[in-house]
Simulated scan of single mutants.
Amino acid sequence: MSSLKTKPTPTASAGIVLAVAAADFVLILVFAAIGRDAHHREEPVLGVLLTAWPFLAGAAAGWLASGAWRSPLSVIRAGVPVWLGTLVVGMLLRALTNQTVVLPFVIVATLALAVFLLGYRLLLAGAARLRRR
């Protein structure tokens, strides 16, 4: 019986994982704050948290489902799953809690969250590629 040896998947340093998770968290809060401001909603701090929580839960689901901590800056292995988790789980939780889920909002959220959650990862990947040249 032969044993198959596989290389362990390298995990990013705790500092990088925390920084990227914090960036995702802050960018989701910014997304919620911009949306609330655009609609002139009251309760700026509590309101932002109430708007953001479904998306934050979705981001956490995306992190867990993808193992994003292994390569948190990877657009494909972390960014896309976190973005999709944020969007899909966020919208499902909004629907389940009787918050607004209409097509224009879904479209705006899809695009804005993609720019926020994928954008900085793409910029950092591009900067790393330029440094290697």
Rank of each mutant, 00 (worst) to 15 (best):
A114D: 08
A52W: 12
L103D: 00
V20Y: 09
P8S: 08
A68F: 00
K5G: 04
I107S: 00
P44C: 06
A68L: 14
D37L: 15
A109F: 15
L18I: 12
L46R: 15
L64I: 13
T9S: 12
L118F: 03
R121T: 06
L124P: 08
G15T: 10
S13H: 14
T97K: 01
A12R: 11
L64E: 03
V82E: 06
I76M: 11
L122D: 05
R70Y: 12
L64T: 12
T110S: 14
R70G: 02
V45Y: 10
L92V: 15
L118M: 13
K5S: 14
W83T: 13
T100E: 14
N98R: 01
F55C: 13
L96S: 02
L56W: 02
A52S: 13
H39D: 11
L118S: 07
A109I: 11
V26R: 02
T86I: 09
T100A: 14
V88T: 12
P44F: 10
T100I: 13
V108R: 09
A95N: 01
V26Q: 02
V106S: 05
R131Q: 13
L96C: 11
T110V: 06
Q99D: 08
N98Y: 05
A14I: 15
M91L: 15
V101C: 11
G15M: 11
I76G: 03
R131K: 14
V20K: 02
I28L: 12
G90M: 06
T9L: 13
L122G: 03
L130R: 15
A59T: 04
S2Y: 10
A61H: 01
L130S: 12
R121C: 06
A114S: 03
A125K: 05
A109K: 07
V101S: 00
V82C: 11
L64C: 07
L113D: 01
L92P: 10
F25M: 11
T51H: 04
L56E: 02
L84N: 03
F55Q: 10
V17M: 12
I28V: 15
V89G: 02
A32N: 02
V26W: 04
W69V: 11
F55D: 09
G47K: 01
V102P: 00
V101R: 04
A78V: 05
L118A: 06
A57S: 14
Y120G: 07
A95Y: 08
G79W: 12
P81M: 02
V80D: 07
W83E: 12
T97D: 03
I107E: 04
S3R: 04
L29R: 02
V75C: 01
R36Y: 00
W53Q: 08
W63P: 09
S71V: 04
A12M: 09
S71P: 02
S13L: 12
P8Y: 01
Y120H: 09
A19N: 04
P44M: 09
L118T: 07
N98M: 05
L123D: 06
N98L: 15
A128G: 08
A95K: 00
A57G: 08
G126N: 09
V101I: 11
D24C: 08
L46K: 04
S3I: 05
S2P: 14
S2V: 14
A65Y: 05
V108F: 09
L50E: 12
